[in-house]
Nucleic acid binder design. Structure first.
Lengths: 377, 377
DNA sequence: AGATTTTGTTAAACTGATTAAACAGTTAAA
DNA sequence: TTTAACTGTTTAATCAGTTTAACAAAATCT
């Protein structure tokens, strides 16, 4: 922290000073001429062909690096292309070739889906990978009306995209089965037991790591704030939670479970429910970091010390939450890598790979301050 | 809060119970046949024309609701279209018409740009509006390499999009001037004094509201955590800050200013700098909520009570931060509406409207718990 | 009734690329 | 020497729509 505090804002020079006194406008350079640009005539492949003295087919093949073009011709034509500043129209390219080079990311119709750290991290991975693979990204939200109108199918049928990455959905979202026949990857979940391609984090491993940690710290009355039990990966966590308790000779009670809806407030509400229903709970396993944060906030505000009275473990390892107080012990999900993998697999699928995709990425526990050895009474 | 805590998770019925015992797989229905779908032959406009006994031109005109088509023909052809389940290929449509019906959202190359509450809120507005106007959204990040390769220009030249919305940029980002000749809206900033279309929040108004509040509470030694002083809107805040102090007969000191880089940690670092440099500061005006949160975290952790010792005001009014402790007094920026407006204006521009866009949206102060009357010594 | 306008439809050109098939010109094999 | 196999390039068809100009038929005006 001391490190962090030092390197910022030691210089208060020109600009801030200027704000205090005269307001000197920053100079902005424009490289082009000051007047209106001539609406440059669109250069087509035919213009290039004419200029280079070859056929359009040749230019096209140069563009696509077709090996049937000789080295000499390639260089000559490429030079003309560069000189003329020709850029192929990708609508025409996509129309005649089979591919649009565009992927869609489908998000659930949540009000803050675009501002969500969980989605954001996956999206980062997808975006980086898609860029490298030469694909653009379309963002869509699966609102009820949208699905009703079949817009998700139009995405393919009208050739908007070559494939779709679905984030934040589960088996309740039956529209997913409409996309079964097209290139599609379900991200961070499964569906209908292998009906769809998927890539998800190993929630069973994560749950085991979290439970191991809590049990080793001596906790026996462990509550769980889950969410979306219709989601297979969420059920994985619930199952491992109960199994691990049983393996430790503990009989999990129903009163130890509460739904936190994956939200901050939901987590707080669930913490309230659990702690009032069972005073003996000494630890909480939470289905994601947001709920864990909500739970901690509730606990602290209501006189429970974290971790002295109650330990809390989250899931996700969202950035910037490491700075929370107490900082959160949590299962790190490789969300960025998940996005990368999903994107990679999808593009392979589009390019004709036929094997079903069923990747499961490993997790690890990040031990921070929200857990401690069980309190002795 | 009591309200919030009650309505959640009172029922622990089937599914959670199932997790504790037997694991009954959820049934998923598929409406289509179980085998592989036949790769349905693509239906083209010519097929529709033949089936309906009219020319392709007629079908096209029905599709585009051209008034030259008679009511009778329209209905007849539309029925055939519906029966055949025909969906026009939009690549072909875009190729021959002038428009792609796609907009790009350009984000700065920050690691967590996709998970940012500020961008997320604007994006929500853009997305909703774009959907209603029949436009798709492409997301791009202006990484240095990306700009160097001229990909931002390709967006238009290769006909990926009709227009671009630029979020989170300022006058330092000179690539913006490359896009001057195309439909583009700079969102939440100005550039080169009216060289580009823009839509931004009224930061001057916001700063005035914040300073009024602090001055009325009796604060005279008011520090400011700013960021990105190269940004015109950020300079607006700095200017109003100094002006308002001077109007109140206070001479702003340079030591009251620190750059917080718009980040959480930056805010904490700036708070450290300001409070150690000048012990008399009783209030902090912060350029955004993230820095304000960082500042509060630092202050609380270092023995300053907020708001009793130091009041803090933010900018943005990010969701979910209302729940922080203490909750944050902040200038509400209409970010969702900003996105809506920007999108609306951009589409107008694309459709031929020529007037320069220079919208400025009003702000208001949201008074919460992080401000109080100045401490008396 | 004949000329003019309006209305509805169509043929054909056009958008800007890809690609299969054809075609010369070489080179290698029989 | 003839045939076969390559090479490198071009011709022409194709992708799936929009749009302009032309045209016939019906309606309106002298």
């Amino acid at each position: 922290m001391a490190e962090k505090l030092r390197n910022e804002s030691l210089e208060l020079s020109g600009i801030a000073a200027a704000a205090l006194g005269a307001t000197e406008p920053i100079q902005v350079k424009f490289d082009a001429s000051p007047g209106e640009e001539k609406p440059t005539e669109r250069i087509s492949i035919r213009d290039v062909a004419k200029e280079a003295g070859v056929s359009v087919a040749t230019v096209s093949m140069v563009l696509n690096e077709n090996p049937r073009i000789s080295r000499a011709t390639h260089i000559r034509v490429q030079r003309v292309i560069d000189n003329m500043g020709y850029r192929p129209n990708r609508l025409a390219q996509s129309l005649s070739s089979r591919y649009t080079q565009v992927l869609a990311v489908m998000l659930p119709p949540l009000r803050h889906a675009f501002a969500d750290a969980y989605f954001g991290e996956i999206l980062s991975g997808i975006s980086d990978r898609a860029g490298k693979l030469g694909h653009k990204l379309l963002i869509e939200q699966a609102k009820p009306q949208y699905i009703k109108e079949g817009k998700h199918i139009e995405l393919y049928e009208r050739r908007f995209v070559d494939g779709v990455l679905c984030l934040g959905f589960n088996e309740k979202h039956t529209f997913l089965s409409d996309l079964r026949q097209y290139p599609m990857i379900l991200v961070d979940n499964r569906f209908g037991d292998g009906m769809l391609d998927y890539v998800h984090c190993d929630y069973r491993m994560g749950a085991k790591q979290a439970m191991n940690c809590l049990l080793q710290l001596g906790h026996r009355n462990v509550g769980m704030i889950y969410a979306a039990p219709e989601s297979p990966t969420a059920r994985d966590v619930l199952e491992v939670y109960t199994t691990e308790l049983r393996n430790a000779g503990i009989d999990p009670k129903e009163s130890w479970l509460a739904d936190g809806c994956f939200t901050d407030e939901g987590g707080a509400a669930a913490a309230h429910l659990l702690t009032t229903r069972d005073k003996d709970i000494t630890a909480l396993l939470c289905g994601n970091d947001k709920m864990a944060l909500g739970a901690i906030r509730y606990l602290v505000e209501h006189g429970h010390k974290v971790p002295q009275d109650i330990s809390v473990v989250g899931f996700d390892d969202i950035q910037h939450l490491a700075y929370a107080n107490p900082s959160l012990t949590t299962v790190h999900l490789p969300l960025y890598e998940l996005g990368v993998a999903a994107c990679e697999r999808l593009v392979n699928r589009i390019r004709g790979k036929v094997d079903r995709v069923t990747d499961v990425l490993p997790t690890h526990l990040v031990l921070r301050e929200s857990t401690s050895i069980v309190r002795t009474r």
